[in-house]
């Protein structure tokens, strides 16, 4: 046999060792690799597009899991440009207290009472499309329908039907990244009775809202509703809101500034009389506490024989 010179033998030896080394390190992780190969990237529904079921005034596409109940206290102070005699609006308070029940993971019903115009409201919210991860369906869509009754004392008695208003809305949102989500919402507001003959009964609007997380538990939010056809005779502005979401365990705390006083769709979309750019701004907050009344499914049990 031909003699291999010592140099090339050394090289061959090192290559051999290197190859072996390579293989043995591979062997360390090949088990994990085998596991990962089996776990195909699943396309699962994207969760937490927004922290809360509300963005500022309006709803987000989020619905809570079946068996959850949310207690919602929404509060708006008066206008900050109302001067020191009104303590920059802090003397005044507008409140909505609400209860939302999640009947299924996708269907929520809610009721509420607003101090503004002594209004009772009820709504149905149904998530009918879900954004999926790993190149799945690109957005989430939720349908929203609400009815509200304005029970103020009036100088003239009105029929119950004339106290009613309705809102239909489609909420469409996409979570672009773990921190950034955007939502669009075409809305139709119908009022059975309007203040003047010039006011329209049906208002159409398009909302846009978003959130950017600034830490693991807090986010900046914005919300804007553009009205296509509302009256211009009485003061009427598009609703604007800027806010911060802070989440602490079972609570979501949202603090914001907005030119809207009302906290139901019919009010803030079609009946905002404050000009944000003129300082008609309300400081407000939403306090949301989630309770789990019932839970779907049972916790899995350990296997036998240990």
């Amino acid at each position: 046999m031909r003699k291999i010179n010592p140099n090339s033998r050394r090289i061959l030896f090192s290559i051999g060792i290197l190859l072996l080394f390579n293989l043995s390190t591979m062997a360390q992780d090949d088990l994990l690799e085998m596991l990962e190969e089996e776990q195909e990237p699943e396309s699962t529904p994207v969760s937490a597009t927004f922290k809360s079921t509300r963005i500022i005034n309006g709803h987000s596409i989020e619905t809570r899991k079946a068996g959850s109940m949310e207690v919602i206290i929404q509060h708006r102070f008066g206008r900050i440009n109302s001067g020191i005699e009104n303590f920059f609006g802090l003397d005044e308070a507008y409140i909505r207290i609400g209860l939302d029940f999640s009947l299924t993971d996708k269907l929520t019903v809610g009721i509420g009472r607003s101090s503004e115009k002594a209004t009772y409201d009820g709504f149905l919210k149904y998530k009918f499309l879900e954004q999926k991860s790993n190149g799945g369906f690109p957005f989430t869509a939720t349908a929203f329908f609400s009815a509200a009754s304005d029970t103020r004392d009036r100088p003239v008695e009105v029929d119950f039907k004339h106290t009613l208003s309705y809102v239909g809305e489609i909420l469409i949102a996409r979570k672009f990244s773990p921190g950034f989500s955007l939502q669009m919402m075409p809305v139709w507001v119908h009022r059975n009775l309007v203040e003047t003959p010039e006011d329209v009964n049906d208002v159409f609007a398009l909302g846009i809202a978003g959130r950017q997380k600034i830490s693991r538990r807090s986010a900046l939010t914005f919300e804007y509703y553009y009205q296509f056809n509302n009256t211009t005779d009485s003061p009427n502005y598009n609703s604007i809101g800027l806010g911060i979401d802070i989440e602490t365990g079972g609570h979501v705390f949202q603090i914001h500034v907005t030119n809207s006083r009302g906290m139901i769709e019919k009010e803030f979309i079609a009946d905002t009389d404050g000009d944000f750019w003129d300082g008609d701004i309300h400081i407000g907050f939403n306090l949301i506490r989630v309770f789990q009344l019932k839970r779907d499914g049972k916790p899995p049990k350990p296997m036998e024989g240990y």
Binding site: L35, T44, A48, G249, G250
Partner: peptide
């Protein structure tokens, strides 16, 4: 070797499960 998919942990409170995954 073992691998545990984080999103498949089941909690008694659904919102807690969401926070666990999200935050």
């Amino acid at each position: 070797a073992f691998s545990v998919p984080i999103r498949d942990f089941y909690f008694a409170k659904a919102l807690m499960q969401e926070h666990f995954n999200e935050n």
